[in-house]
Design a protein around this nucleic acid. Structure first.
Lengths: 363, 363
DNA sequence: GACCAATATTGGATCGATCAAATCCACATT
DNA sequence: AATGTGGATTTGATCGATCCAATATTGGTC
């Protein structure tokens, strides 16, 4: 005989847990529904002794407000939407994802995912997410010039924040971004302080806003230091191509240090160095960008985007917009300064700490 | 309709969109609320001509059922929970994330994220997610022997599915996993068919279930082919360490091909090969595991876990469990066979196509 | 034409919270 | 003692869907 002590096959084990409601808490505390609600939502309205009695009942019963009911009345879901892209090119996305989930959670919001093949599809998805799910707001990534998504959302008064500047345009919505130029500038200063005078740059093909920004930080810092600005190498995020570009760069002049626009480019350069018998950190210094897991396992010095800070700011700006604050002024824009994480690839000839690690925010 | 256009300074642009409801659709179609609901939920109950009339009204008004209201009544949220871990070691997580979001979406479910520092914290999070958000079910990843999460969930009759076998234990819940041994076996067969007789293996330290599984596929295939099984190299997912391990392996015997337990290990090996002037795909064949973005940009042949298939199966099993099916039998277990994706690192001396190529190259 | 079963449609109650307005109450004011 | 005051508390209506029971319609049978 199998172990089933069961007669009715279907749902016997169902414990039929009665979830506590406002009413059950109210009854136990000897007050009314609304008073319990006030204890939770408008504590100033409730006399402290009744509040204590209610709180006791709440914890005794293990009451938790049911959000669907709340949402039905208030039209607020406490859910924020975030798109996951198909291409996993963005090595840093999962770090951002974790950070934004945590930051939202700290204010009792949750992240809901959706997919879309392009911006048009994403806009179509908004209708669905707003109409059926009552999403409170959106976190946009990978913004670009002429982005239709933000204008669509502002037209409907839907709160949103973007990770990424609206390059070249002014924005009616809040955004958070990382000052890539400041990152490469810090790396350049760090290397100059370490005694390097010939510092190369391996970047992406010109034309990408992010790439040009990172390039400019390097160039301007060299100029400011009175050093020559050599011709940068150019490559897409392909290891083989990056390695070839690094080879060209090493042939043209023999830099003692190399700053790269991404960790992938840096890894490509490392491959070429290895083939030439040059030891990173000893014979040549190499700096990447993103501080990805790749940099960590390679011992590559890299510029960290401080995604936890980005996520936390995104959550703050967006939630402040969602919640009926006193009165929001102009949309806030936050530009964060990245942080150089030194590892073995910039060697043991580390200088005295001339460059202050960027601690304070600038907004 | 010029309904008293208020000149209040605050919310002027507010279009005050009246969202269509069941009632408004019913009124327009000249039927009752319940009939409209039946058209959507129990179409067989409605005569076809009335159904047509209702459908017309629905599309004219652009009606979408409001899920919070539905959830309040049915206790189903159409939301599935997925934990995002802090450590971004898992190079494949974002691919899985995209795939599971899409698979769930196809059946009108959404993915909600949460974080937890460890399993205990995750269990604590369940209470919150179940009690307040009414999450319908959970997708668990990174299961391990003695996992308390699954037993906790089954105790409360909460549907869940895990990506990952419950190693060594039998499971009362459905799971989906990838047969890593079959993957390395396929890679080994592929190389044997290409004429290789000395095929090395670079794996993780023994003791990890996943790692041992991948190792075994290689070893058993060599034995089955009557080839010698050399001592494998061992390294964690650290590029420097992997390179060193590859060096030892190359010194011990000179394999013509090398299979690695992960793409990171393979990249480490590639670095050592480059330093020795050995060209992958010409002088030695190299195979990785995961088919990560890393493999793509490196031209590394790699074993693909078919995460889209994993995600789609996870979604299917979980949603079938959530929805009141006719009668589910024993929990279903799915073991998927991974797929070898050949790139330049296994060279141009490709044999007759014994191994089927995957569909399209992933861009 | 009356009757019945099967099917289609309707109206009211409900899920669990908030909102808006009414009531209660203690205390000071006239 | 009657009245006003304002804070604390309660009551009834509501959000938008589903569930349930009651009623209306249809079609077949004698």
């Amino acid at each position: 005989m199998p172990d089933s002590t069961v007669a009715s096959a279907v749902d016997v084990a169902r414990p039929a847990i009665v979830r506590p409601t406002l009413d059950s808490v109210a009854e136990r505390a000897g007050v009314s529904r609304q008073t319990v609600s006030n204890v939770l939502n408008s504590p100033h309205m409730v006399r402290s002794d009744t509040a204590d009695r209610v709180k006791l009942a709440i914890s005794e019963l293990g009451y938790r407000p049911h959000l669907a009911a709340k949402q039905l009345r208030t039209r607020r879901s406490r859910v924020l939407g975030l798109r996951v892209a198909k291409v996993g090119t963005d090595a840093v996305f999962d770090r951002f994802l974790h950070a934004i989930t945590e930051a939202a959670s700290a204010r009792d919001y949750r992240i809901m995912l959706y997919t879309a093949v392009d911006d048009d599809a994403e806009i179509a998805a908004y209708d669905e997410l707003l109409g059926r799910w009552d999403i409170d707001g959106f976190i946009l990534t990978a913004t670009h010039p002429g982005d239709l998504r933000t204008s669509y959302l502002s037209d409907r008064n839907v709160p949103c924040v973007s990770f990424g500047r609206p390059w070249g345009e002014s924005a009616a919505h809040p955004w958070v971004d990382v000052d890539g130029g400041a990152g490469t500038a810090a790396a350049t200063e760090y290397l100059i302080a370490a005694g390097h005078t010939d510092i190369g740059f391996l970047g992406w093909p010109t034309g990408s806003a992010v790439g040009d920004d990172r390039h400019s930080g390097w160039a301007r810092t060299l100029r400011a230091a009175g050093l020559k600005v050599p011709e940068p190498g150019r490559s897409t995020n392909d290891l083989t191509e990056a390695r070839a570009a690094a080879a060209v760069l090493l042939d043209q002049h023999a830099p003692s240090a190399l700053i790269c626009a991404s960790d992938v480019l840096a890894i490509g350069a490392l491959a070429e160095l290895a083939a030439r018998g040059l030891r990173p950190g000893h014979d040549i210094a190499v700096v990447g960008f993103d501080n990805s897991e790749l940099a960590n396992v390679t011992g590559l010095t890299s510029v960290d985007q401080r995604l936890e800070a980005v996520a936390s700011e995104c959550a703050r700006l967006l939630i402040d917009l969602v919640e009926p604050g006193p009165d929001a002024g102009a949309p806030e824009h936050v530009l964060l300064t990245p942080e150089l994480v030194a590892r073995s690839s910039t060697g043991h000839f580390r200088p005295s700490p001339v460059i202050p690690h960027p601690q304070g925010e600038n907004q």
